[in-house]
């Protein structure tokens, strides 16, 4: 990490914030049956890369501070996997649609 001075929990939280914003945008489009799935795909991709950055942060600190950061990272891992799964499904659907058009 370049910025050792900054609390790793804060760094992770900032990635979370960005990821939350992107994935929420993707979900809002995706949850709408008539939503533009191509747009949702772009937001999912952005969200996934933020989640990956947040997960890659090495947690410094100890005790309660460490546990909190770790819990948040664990949840981000869950959402990373779920978002990736959703993304590949959307991409597959879009690809088969293109073929049948």
């Amino acid at each position: 990490m370049a910025s050792k001075s900054k609390d790793s929990g804060e760094v992770i939280k900032n990635y979370h914030k960005q990821a939350f914003e992107y994935v929420s945008k993707a979900l809002r489009i995706d949850e709408d049956d008539s939503g533009a799935k191509e747009e949702a795909v772009q937001w999912y991709k952005k969200g996934i890369s933020e989640l990956e950055r947040g997960i890659a942060v090495e947690i410094t600190g100890q005790g309660e501070q460490y546990d909190r950061a770790k819990r948040l990272q664990d949840k981000m891992v869950t959402n990373l996997n779920m978002a990736k799964e959703r993304l590949s499904l959307l991409e597959a659907t879009m690809a088969s649609k293109r073929r049948s058009d």
């Binding site: 914030k17 994935v23 979900l27 995706d30 309660e64 501070q65 909190r68």
Partner: peptide
């Protein structure tokens, strides 16, 4: 502030999980 912020972040991640799971279950 750190602890409240973390709880909010945690809850927000949970919300994403729920919404993603819901979409998955629709298929």
């Amino acid at each position: 502030t750190g602890s409240v912020g973390s709880s909010v972040a945690s809850a927000e991640q949970d919300e994403l999980s729920q919404r993603l799971a819901k979409l998955r279950d629709q298929m």
